[in-house]
Amino acid sequence: MENFLSWIYGHQEYIYIVILMVFLGIEVIGRVPSVLHTPLMSGANAIHGVVIIGAIIVMGKAESDNYLALILGFLAVILGTLNVVGGFVVTDRMLEMFRKKEKPQTPKGA
């Protein structure tokens, strides 16, 4: 019990962040209209690509004789970048179509 409580004390900052982010995530998504579900999923997919930062740290810390870390870190950087870049580009492509649609609407209304 004592251990557990002191663990909570030691990690309270994280615990707060996690709890607040959970509510924020739900709050932010809760108002998304269903038309935007696919781009939203894709956008969220790109955002969790933030894991790339971990990969960069792994890669950048690897000693030059630690081949396992070098190879896996290199692979992780590639995969993480794929996630980030691919995710944002795909989302942008989807949303581009939503915008294109608005233009012909204006002349129609005029």
Partner: peptide, 18 residues
Amino acid sequence: NKLMLTGGILVGAAGTLL
């Protein structure tokens, strides 16, 4: 790393709700 933490949890929560 607070950025990885916030980004990850944000997507985790939002994805679960979705």
